[in-house]
Design a protein around this nucleic acid. Structure first.
Length: 423
RNA sequence: GGAGAAAUGGCAGAGUGGUCGAAUGCGGCAGUCUUGAAAACUGUUGAGGGUCACACCUCCGGGGGUUCGAAUCCCUCUUUCUCCGCCA
């Protein structure tokens, strides 16, 4: 959530910045400023009313103590009018504050100045590309065929047990999943991230904290009986570790990593691109999350990008990095880079990681602050990235490492799988 | 699931109707001392709104109520602890 004083002081810059998303913020921004003024006027009226009644209450106390009950009773009558007006003012204030809040929820983050304008994913820019696309033999297959051929993922069985989008991993497929999780976690902890095991169900406040609510309600599974949400990503419980937290400047930077399953309703998704592992209702992901000093957050961002590069390099997967344009950058993010692995058999790129700097946007909702060197409380910056999402990495491995005699396991994973091929 | 107790500042912990935004201790910050550090001593130190800055207002788990006045009394919800039951 953007901060009102920031909007007030940088009105034109905010509108111009959001225009890069093809988001017309002009009316919203105007309304925010008007409502905020209204809010402050009401607040100060209410404050004055309360101040007056506080003074009278004190007088009454003193009068009673000195035995002047009659005078005290006379004063009591004065307070009833004050009570009435403070009640009305409070109601007005709450209404105004709520309206303002709802407007603020509708404003996405202002993209970083380096983020190019653009409407959709077509305008994302490839900024890096590494790894060799293998020349596959004739008859190479997409991963869903390979999964069946080697009996390592059973989509039909998942259909029976749960429904579409809930695959069952079996034998070496299951082991490979577990290997990837351990491998990613080891890589992340070696890079300084602290491993966390986080809840897979979270409450409403946590969803507001990271911005899943109120916007993306329909994308999450919800247990209405206990009012809990299944996490769509470890970002939600992981970032809410820092909700309502006041840090010391010396605590920064903080990096945590965690493996969780992720649950997404994916309402509205359809078509050939959702086949196999490409899009699932339940999938596994290892996430990295950072809390940073505002001055260092972009260094940290590029550090995360380098870290993910090093993993993909070690797995020897062909990948590219996209700098997302304004229109494709997620609502709360100021800057996002996507990583995509090349799926040779499908002849297309698959997103496997997304690294974002949210600057203060999440921290403002979370109330995540640190005490800066002036002794003032200042909002921290939050960042996160996948390191990495499993299904499409698995798809990439299966497809790119296939041979006529089976699937070769990348060297870096062999210590984790305990086997070198799937045949 | 049943019974009881509790929830106060970064942490611990006093405070049962008015002068309490809240004693005290720890921690943090600044200083004295020291070559430096530690210890000791002195001072300082909650958050939000508001203001150029003050003033002022709000906040003692959340919400509601009683009262001229609530951390303190009442209702309710949530959470934690103890005991019992159940259980991976």
């Amino acid at each position: 959530m953007l901060q009102v004083p920031f909007i007030r002081d940088n009105k034109e810059a905010v509108i111009a910045g959001l225009a890069k998303r093809h988001f017309d913020a002009k009316d919203l921004v105007e309304q925010v400023i008007v409502l905020d003024e209204e809010r402050r006027t009401l607040q100060s009226k209410l404050d004055n009313t309360l101040a007056e009644s506080n003074v009278i209450s004190k007088e009454i106390g003193i009068l009673y103590k000195s035995g002047q009950g009659e005078k005290a009773n006379a004063l009591k009558e004065k307070t009833s009018a004050l009570k009435e007006s403070s009640k009305t003012l409070t109601e007005d204030l709450n209404t105004t504050a709520e309206k303002l809040q709802n407007l603020l929820y509708q404003l996405p983050n202002v993209p970083h100045e380096s983020v190019p304008a653009g409407k959709s994913e077509e305008e994302n820019e490839e900024i890096f590309n590494e790894g060799e696309v293998p020349k596959l033999f004739d008859g190479a297959q997409p991963h869903w065929e390979l999964a069946k051929k080697y009996d390592i993922i059973d989509f039909e069985l998942g259909n029976k047990i749960s429904g579409a989008g809930f695959p069952v991993y079996k034998g070496k497929g299951a082991r490979l999943q577990r290997a990837l999780i351990s491998y990613f976690l080891d890589k992340n902890t070696a890079a300084g991230y602290t491993e966390y095991q986080l809840p897979h169900l979270v409450n409403e406040a946590s969803c507001y904290g990271t911005g899943q609510l109120p916007d993306k309600e329909g994308q999450m599974y919800h247990d209405s009986r206990d009012d809990l949400y299944l996490i769509p990503t470890a970002e939600v419980p992981g970032t809410n570790v820092f909700r309502d937290v006041l840090l010391n400047e010396s605590d920064l930077p903080i990096g945590i990593t965690g493996y969780t399953p992720c649950f997404r309703r994916e309402a509205g998704s359809y078509g050939a691109h959702v086949r196999g592992l490409n899009r699932l209702h339940q999938f596994d992901k290892v996430e990295i999350i950072r809390v940073e000093h505002p001055e260092n957050s972009y260094n940290a961002f590029f550090g995360m990008v380098e870290h993910i590069k090093s993993i993909l390099r070690e797995l020897k997967l062909p990948y590219r990095i996209l700098r997302l344009c304004g229109g494709d950058t997620g609502f709360p993010s100021a800057m996002t880079y996507d990583f995509e692995v090349f799926s040779t058999a499908q002849d297309r790129w698959l997103e496997i990681s997304s690294v974002s700097n949210f600057e203060t946007y999440q921290a403002n909702r979370l109330k995540l602050r640190f005490k800066n060197s002036d002794g003032k409380n200042e909002l921290a910056h939050t960042l996160n990235g996948s390191a990495l999402a499993l299904p499409r990495v698995l798809a990439g491995i299966l497809e790119n490492y296939q041979t006529e005699n089976g699937i070769t396991i990348p060297d870096a994973l062999v210590p984790y799988t305990g086997f070198k091929t799937i045949e």
